[in-house]
């Protein structure tokens, strides 16, 4: 990745982070921690990788992204708005009665949202369906899905992991947002999800572990996933929950609490400097 591209992606990521803080502060509820941890992954996919057309969200040949960890909706909305799927004004109506942007992604109401998610564990199965349809129709589109690390405690994830490997869905790439935290504490304390790599490998996936905030590593991993034939790829992205806002980083309490006005200003000030 050349320096210019890298700088552009970092700039985008910074805009997305500010949008997340602003929209959550305005909504007075929502999930900052797991939105901020996934910023680089979504920024890379939408601004560098995926073949999509915001003016034609239903274009049949488009690449697809499914946010299986649906509570990360703010990062998806911020990216979709930045990409031009809808106006940024919508971001400030997040979670309000009558608004387009629901607390969790709603594919019927929001252009660019590929699957309604929010109840954990369900997005990978839907992604499999999209990948199977692509194979059936001989289409070249790829399917990306973001799974939370806590979400791996859902049994359906492993049902779907088995299905993807069984059907050799090499047009499917799953990112695991491995920020190590969930609502009640660390994954380790609540219910240990390790060894994550071994689990996906045992289910027949190609596995790559990266720093989920490093664009170059994300790019390399996606490239490797595309070159991997006959099996799906899981990219275990080591991330920091709340990344970019010092007082939110690695703080379990910032899973599902919105910043107040003072905290918002403090966060935005920190984000004046690009990370």
């Amino acid at each position: 990745m050349d320096n210019k591209t890298l700088e552009q992606l970092k700039e985008k990521a910074n805009i997305i982070r500010k949008d997340i803080i602003n929209m959550l502060a305005e909504a007075k509820s929502g999930h900052p921690g797991g939105s901020l941890s996934a910023v680089e992954i979504l920024t890379y996919l939408y601004f560098k990788e995926m073949n999509v057309d915001p003016t034609n969200p239903q274009w049949p040949d488009r690449d697809r992204f499914v946010l299986s960890k649906g509570h990360g909706a703010p990062v998806l909305y911020a990216v979709l708005a930045e990409k031009g799927y809808f106006s940024k004004e919508e971001l400030m109506k997040l979670r309000k009665t009558g608004a387009m942007l629901q607390g969790h992604p709603d594919m019927k109401g929001t252009p660019g949202v590929e699957m309604s998610t929010g109840s954990l564990g369900q997005g990978l199965s839907a992604s499999n369906g999209m990948a199977l349809a692509g194979k059936l129709d001989n289409k070249n589109y790829r399917v990306y899905v973001l799974v939370g690390d806590g979400e791996m405690q859902e049994g359906q994830i492993w049902e779907a992991a088995m299905t993807a490997a069984h059907y050799k869905l090499d047009n499917l790439t799953a990112f695991v947002d491995n920020n190590g935290l969930q609502i009640d504490g660390t994954n380790e304390d609540v219910k240990n999800v390790e060894p994550i790599e071994d689990k996906w490998k045992a289910f027949g996936w190609h596995v790559i572990t990266i720093d989920g905030h490093d664009f170059q590593q994300i790019e390399n991993a996606v490239k490797e996933a595309k070159e991997t034939k006959g099996k799906p790829t899981a990219i275990i992205a080591k991330t920091v929950k709340g990344k970019g806002v010092s007082f939110m980083e690695n703080q379990v309490d910032w899973h599902g609490v919105a910043p107040n006005e003072e905290q918002k200003e403090k966060a935005l000030k920190e984000l004046e400097v690009r990370i």
Partner: peptide
């Protein structure tokens, strides 16, 4: 889809989106 009814429904949903 094997003995996994939750995955059965979710996979069907994904196919329907296409």
């Amino acid at each position: 889809i094997g003995i996994s009814e939750q995955d059965l429904m979710g996979t069907a949903a994904g196919l329907a989106t296409c």
